[in-house]
Design a protein around this nucleic acid. Structure first.
Length: 318
DNA sequence: CTCGAACA
DNA sequence: TGTTCGAGG
């Protein structure tokens, strides 16, 4: 599974963050946190983010590094946390779990061999979003006046709908699923430095002369986080078959293949379960840096590290 | 993600 | 020859 096929189909354009000045961006919290966790554990000494009782909270340091550039553009970030994953994602979740387990083993081996660089590389791969990380991330967002929402299902689906409903101007995630969930505009590859990448649904559809429904069908044939695709079909043949007027059902018949619960999968992307959405746009409030300092202190973060991060935030009225 | 092998 | 697959960094 996995969906690198969508990468070759997607229309991607470079975009400076300033293009979204004053806008609201719905951020896939899971992806955001994970990105910073792996990045940070790779380069930072772990005693900086480990508390006395051994709890590792690299999020407290990492999650906020990306915020100042966004706030300086007067962008309102809205973090969207995942709800319960769809049961069809179970296999994908299991294989990620297996990969982490394998990385753990390799990390232990590297530690044994005294290979610190390899150890850190594998450690990054073992990172997962623990309950403690979830809890402290929400708490810190509150202290920094950043709004967040709990999605009723997949975060990517929720952020896509927020853009569709006009509650946000763009979704932010690296996940190509955003296209299948119908996000009109998705910001990818945001690093806080240099331009990001925007992925546009309309241009993608127009480039291939297909509808959103057809894109979903192509995705399902190539394989997604929720299903194995049809062996021998990638992005090229997928587009070719669908634009020649064949239906997925016909292609399956030709290949003697099956996709379990095809209509359920289509629904999953075209009308995902998202839970309730707010009826008014979310706004941010003034950060409480004093409380944030106290919070960081509680988690034993070095003061100079926290101060450095705070100094990057735009100036608010004291 | 990049690359070479396998395949239609 | 172009496309997909699968291993490895």
């Amino acid at each position: 599974m996995g969906n690198s096929a969508l990468r070759t189909l997607a229309t991607l354009e470079e975009t400076p963050l300033s293009e979204y000045a004053g806008a609201t961006v719905a951020i896939d919290a899971h992806h955001w946190i994970y990105r910073y966790l792996t990045g940070l554990t790779r380069y930072m000494d772990d005693n900086i983010y480990t508390t006395e009782d051994g709890t590792e909270l690299p999020n407290v340091a990492g999650v906020f590094r990306g915020l100042p550039p966004i706030l300086r553009e007067d962008i309102t970030p809205v973090f969207v946390f995942d709800g319960k994953p769809h049961e069809r994602k179970a296999d994908e979740i299991q294989s990620r779990r297996d990969a982490k387990q394998e990385a753990k083993q390799k990390m232990a081996d590297a530690a044994e061999a005294g290979d610190t660089a390899a150890m850190k590389r594998y450690k990054a791969q073992t990172q997962s979003l623990t309950p403690a990380i979830h809890e402290t991330t929400r708490e810190a967002l509150e202290l920094l006046g950043i709004p967040y929402i709990e999605a009723g299902g997949a975060g990517e689906a929720y952020t896509a709908k927020m853009v569709e409903y006009g509650l946000a101007d763009a979704a932010m995630t690296d996940d190509y699923d955003a296209l299948l969930f119908g996000s009109p505009t998705t910001i990818r590859q945001y690093t806080g430095k240099g331009p990001a990448e925007k992925m546009l649904l309309n241009k993608t559809l127009h480039n291939h002369g297909i509808t959103h429904e057809q894109l979903v069908d192509i995705g399902l044939m190539c394989g997604t986080d929720y299903n194995d695709g049809i062996s021998g079909i990638g992005p090229k043949r997928g587009v070719k078959y669908i634009t020649s007027g064949k239906t997925v059902e016909e292609i399956l018949e030709d290949k003697g293949a099956t996709i379990d619960g095809l209509s359920q999968l289509r629904e999953l992307f075209l009308s995902p379960t998202i839970g309730s959405v707010p009826d008014t746009p979310l706004t941010r409030t003034e950060p409480d840096f004093a409380q944030f300092r106290a919070f960081a202190n509680e988690w034993e973060f070095p003061t100079q590290f926290i101060e450095k991060n705070i100094s990057r935030f735009p100036r608010y009225a004291e």
